[in-house]
Amino acid sequence: MANALAVFFVVSEPIFSTEQCKTFGHFSNENASLLYKTLLLNMFELFSPLVQKEEFYLYLNEVDNAALGIELTESLPSSHIFFAGSETMDSAFPQLFERKDPETKKVFYVNPDFVGLTPNDVHQIMNLLQLEDDVLILKKTQHKKVDFFATNNFRPEIAEIVKKKNFVCDSSLKKLSGLDYHVYKLKDIFSVTHANDFPELYKMLSRKENYDCCSKQIHDRFTHLFIEYKELL
């Protein structure tokens, strides 16, 4: 089991419910939902070649329970999809990691509101997870939040630090340093959480070096939004 992996996708705000999906700027709830579902799907696509779907765990806001799309319920075992209310999500978060096999030490945490992770990045991270030392890999967003981490020796203390809603990089690093991991802060990722992020997302995905950030199918879904909100670009 030493090489077994578990990938936790944690989405604290509703994204499937078109009525209650978190939104920003001039975005309609429906299009915000499309945006965030696309970001989540992109992460699924990224990890699917490396990790069995049985090792995916999805933690969602309970508002989304009735709104899950068939593409998701068919691709993930229902026992791996969990829900919590906005009030209890933070406190229930550490228990989420107890759902995995206790022998599985290699864990990914993904708050999928970002782009900027490529298959090469994932390979690089997989290599670091092979090191003998206890390794913790962090990726922060342009807003200084840690939306991604991976470790080869998961300990519950990490969940206690991560559960804080604003998993801010520098302050978390100080707390994490007490856990004696070799910490690697790799290239930043780009989260889409503010109105100003949307035109930046367009610029970022237009650059050749970022073509690997998503598949053509995902890119087409983003393009639909770029056309819909072209006045913002």
Partner: peptide, 10 residues
């Protein structure tokens, strides 16, 4: 170190 080789492309 070997770990740095892994991330050298960054």
């Amino acid at each position: 170190g070997y770990d740095n080789l892994i991330v050298f492309d960054s």
